[in-house]
Structure formats: C-alpha cells, structure tokens
Nucleic acid binder design. Structure first.
Lengths: 126, 126
DNA sequence: ACTATATGAAACCATTTGGTTGTACGTTAG
DNA sequence: CTAACGTACAACCAAATGGTTTCATATAGT
C-alpha cells in the first residue's frame, strides 16, 4: 500500500545500478564537466569546440568528455573527422529523480513522526 | 524576456560555490555514502549505529560520514559520548534544483529550436 | 577509581583521478 | 599528394580517495 511504484510506469529510474549512479554523480562532481554539460545541453558541439575555452590541454578535456560519456550523460557521434558531442538529458533526469527519492524518504520520516505524535493510544514509550 | 530568474525568489540555489557543488556530488558518488544518507533521512543515528551494518572498519565509515558532513549533507550533534548524525535534506534539494537547472537549459534549447522553425522571416540560414 | 564504549585522528598503503606530453591515424583542404 | 586538422590513445606524474591499523581522549557504567 506504500505508493512505491505508484506513478512509476514511465520512469525507469530504479534500473540504475550502484555503479551507474556512482559514475553519474562522480561525473557531475567536477566544475569543468558540469560546464561542458551546460554547454552541450544548450547546443551540440565538437570535441575541439568544447575544449577551446578551457585553460587545459585538449587531451584533458577529452578525458572529461570520456567521463561524461561513461556516465551516459553525453554521447559522441562521428561526423567526418570530428565527433559531435550531444547531451543526454534523460540521465540528468534520472539523477534528479534519485535525489527526489531521498526527499520521499525524508517526508516518510516526517509522516511517521506525525503519526507518532497523533497516537491516541500510546503504548509504553519508556 | 528569458524567464531566467522568474520564480526563483524562494530558492537560494545559486549561492552554492563550485567547490560546494563538487563536494555534494562527490559525496553522493559512493554507494555506501548514499546508503548512509538514506538511513539518516529515515532516522537519526549515532556514528556506531551507522557503522555497524557495513563490512568495513569503523574508521572507514567515520570517514564516509566526514565526507557527507563536509558536503553539508549531514550534521553531527554531540550527545554524551556519542554523536547523533542528522540528515540535511536542504542540501539534497539544492543538488536537485541544480539538476533542474540543466533541464531548464535543455528546454531553452528546444524553445530556441522551435522558435527557429517557426520563423516566418528566415534570414540567410546558410 | 577502573573499565568499557564511542569517537577522533594519525600514519600508511593501493588505486583512481586529473592533469601533462608525445605519438599515431583517419579526414579534409589545397 | 601532401599538409593541416580533429581525434584517439599511451605513458607518465602528483594528488586525492578509500581503505587499513594504531593510538588518544572523553564519557558512561559498575
């Protein structure tokens, strides 16, 4: 009766393994990578285009993109000699949904507390 | 005209520095720590209580809790010789809000695309 | 007072991360 | 065809991470 998977028909958020979640959050735990995501979300870009603004080697940015790709936050699509990097907002939504679950847990706790306080039949609360 | 900070009066999500965000996501990028958060959210616990179920040293769990504390996801409150660890759902909501921003960006991109397609006055789209 | 408990903290270690440079290779342009 | 470009990848390095064990300290219980 707990509305666990109540309106969950459309959201495949639970099929993320611990490892996948690890990779998603780890990928998000770096300012450069978050910046890349922001830029990618607003417009597709090649690896070089992405690398250009940063004060680090091209290879370094390449690695950052690889981390994002490993987390499924981004995909690469060959186009001639360049690779178009495209954002995958679905993964972001899954991460967001995951955090939403925590709030659910928190609210569940509050509810339980409320229920406890509303008890009119308190059995030995030693 | 871009609804940037439109309904943002109540949410202090922008005051998180890059470093803070780094720490939050990094803290979330570990299954044990996520598990600790879940448990903490549903009920306060002491460090020992938290450490008990895991197949690792007490000190290791202590460190995990320290990471969570450093990210502001958890606070410790002395009570005699033990420390009560308490969850801080506010930080989780901020992280969630941050991810929400990404979706905003994504939607902004779609809007821009729509606008482009709806253009009835297309000037040299080379 | 003494002992056990709860926590903190240091020193150490293997692995991962985030960066570098250099090399190789397919693709585009002249 | 050859040169320049875009990308991939390997080797290397310093620093951070996640774990360990050990020692120290404060509080609780008897």
């Amino acid at each position: 009766m707990v509305s666990y998977s109540a309106r969950a028909s459309h959201d495949p958020r639970f099929d993320l393994s611990d490892d996948e979640v690890d990779r998603i959050f780890r990928a998000l735990a770096d300012a450069t990578r978050r910046d890349i995501i922001r830029r990618i979300l607003s417009e597709d870009a090649t690896v070089s285009q992405l690398a250009e603004p940063y004060d680090m080697s091209f290879a370094a940015v390449q690695k950052h993109i690889a981390v994002l790709e490993g987390a499924g936050l981004v995909t690469k699509h060959p186009s001639g000699r360049e690779r178009i990097v495209r954002g995958n907002p679905e993964m972001l939504r899954r991460a967001q949904a995951l955090l939403g679950r925590y709030e659910q847990i928190w609210r569940g706790r509050i509810d339980r507390l409320d229920a406890l306080l509303a008890e009119d039949e308190p059995r030995e609360s030693h």
